[in-house]
Amino acid sequence: MVIFIKIDMTSEVPIYEQIKQRIIEGIARRELEAGESLPSVRALAADLSVNMHTISKAYGQLKEKGFLSVHRNLGAVVNPPSEYAADRDYLDTLALALRPYATEALCKGIKAGEWLSVCNEAYEELLKKRGF
């Protein structure tokens, strides 16, 4: 399936982060299946006319998270779900990452139920795009 990687050059979110998020979203929404290949670092950098380091960084972090295998010549290939299945460590990281958001929500007086429904909404929106 064709996926478009669209980056906003004026955004405060770093470009490598935007690319990373887009690819993870592609996998979450099943636009990218296991075994599917992504453009090489050089090709994607040329397509977006950004520095190659930017793409390397995005791919490197995706590889670390288990989403991609990066081959020198073949480019990047999407891993099967078993490679990035959630484990204890992931849940710990997730909890840690959510902490600042939860803290701010608490400050602003958001109740636990409300907090949960906001989280659910974000999650279900992705499921909807998946077509379930």
């Binding site: 050059m9 994607l44 006319s49």
Partner: peptide, 12 residues
């Protein structure tokens, strides 16, 4: 203006 760049991952 918003400045964007788009790549088509299957163009190749």
């Amino acid at each position: 203006a918003q400045v964007t760049s788009v790549a088509d991952t299957k163009f190749s």
